[in-house]
């Protein structure tokens, strides 16, 4: 168990380092002068020199990389060129929005996907099963941003129940929640399409196993067998997909924030691109990639919690 933990943790840290190398390389090694990118073609030579000095561009590449990592570990991502405040401050301001969106999105994704997936498996080859499969097939093909637009047209433009976008801050919690309903639904619906299919096929696989028959022979109700015996055993592949879906969830959050004009990290990253604010973009890309890698790490650890057989082997 201890050996397993250490090996996985080392692997996790190495992956994070490798990811940081990729991010740094793409943002710094590829041809192009960051100072010129930031200031534009009409900048004076003096201004360019000053910026290069500030960004530390005159130092060797390796030094710059280690400096970036060293500072980042301590929470210092440099100064945002466009906002003229530390990038960490910007991230701190916008992180709550992105986290709430992602967590709420994942929460509803799990509820919808597990209910539909298990429900479909329980009605295998019947009407309900086909319905779920059809909906999820469509759900996989629908772009999240288009679904968002459709929802806005229906609930904001036509019915006027919910705001079409924007966010007035957390000071009015009810208004804040109302602004987040449509984004969360859009995020969850699209994500749950894939997960519902995985849940269904995984549950069908488990339902063929002998212990399910044993549970039925013990006089347990179908519902109890499904949720207490089938679902936990179906979870391993589901958790794998949930881990992989974190990449999609991160992407989805970035897209959804831009569809609904929500002031989160995804919106910030696009403002930074428009402002040619390279340090901010670099920090945010690294952050998002780190979230994906961390999610996969947590999934690895979760397997052991779910399956006692792995504990013995680990």
């Amino acid at each position: 168990m201890g050996y397993f933990l250490i090996r996985r943790t080392v692997g996790f840290v190495l992956t994070l380092l490798a990811v940081s190398v990729v991010v740094f390389a793409v943002m710094n090694v590829l041809p192009g002068d960051p100072a010129l990118t930031i200031l534009g073609l009409d900048a004076t030579e003096d201004a360019l020199d000053a910026l290069r000095e500030q960004l530390g561009l005159n130092q060797p590449l390796l030094t710059r990389y280690f400096l970036w990592i060293w500072n980042a570990v301590q929470g210092d991502f440099g100064i945002s060129h466009s906002f003229r405040v530390p990038v960490s401050t910007l991230i701190g301001e916008r992180l709550p929005m992105t986290i709430s969106l992602a967590v709420a999105g994942m929460f509803f994704t799990l509820i919808i996907a597990l209910t539909l997936g298990i429900g479909a498996a329980a009605r295998h080859r019947k009407f309900g099963d086909w319905g779920v499969m059809l909906i999820s097939q469509l759900g996989i093909a629908i772009p999240a941003f288009w679904l968002s637009i459709l929802l806005v047209m229906l609930f904001a433009v036509k019915l006027r129940w919910l705001p079409p976008g924007g966010f007035a801050g957390w000071s009015d919690p009810v208004a804040a929640m109302r602004s987040l309903i449509l984004p969360t639904i859009s995020l969850a619906l699209v994500q749950s399409a894939v997960l519902a299919r995985v849940t269904r096929s995984s549950a069908l696989e488990v339902m063929r196993q002998d212990f399910v028959r044993t549970a039925r022979a013990s006089g347990l109700s179908r519902r109890r067998v499904l949720w207490r015996h089938v679902l936990p055993n179906a979870l391993v592949p589901i958790v794998t997909i949930v881990g992989m879906q974190f990449a999609a969830l991160v992407t989805g959050t970035i897209v959804i924030e831009n569809v609904f004009y929500l002031p989160g990290l995804g919106r910030l990253i696009f403002q930074s691109i428009a402002n040619r604010d390279l340090p901010t973009v670099q920090a945010l890309v690294m952050l998002f990639a780190a979230i994906v890698v961390t999610a996969n790490f947590i999934v690895d650890l979760l397997y052991v919690v779910i399956d006692p057989r792995l504990k013995a082997r680990a």
Binding site: Q209, D210, F211, T214, A215, N233, I306, D307, P308
Partner: peptide
């Protein structure tokens, strides 16, 4: 009781 005691118990 069933044939395969290996598979007939919930492993989790």
């Amino acid at each position: 009781i069933f044939q395969e005691p290996m598979a007939a118990l919930n492993p989790l």
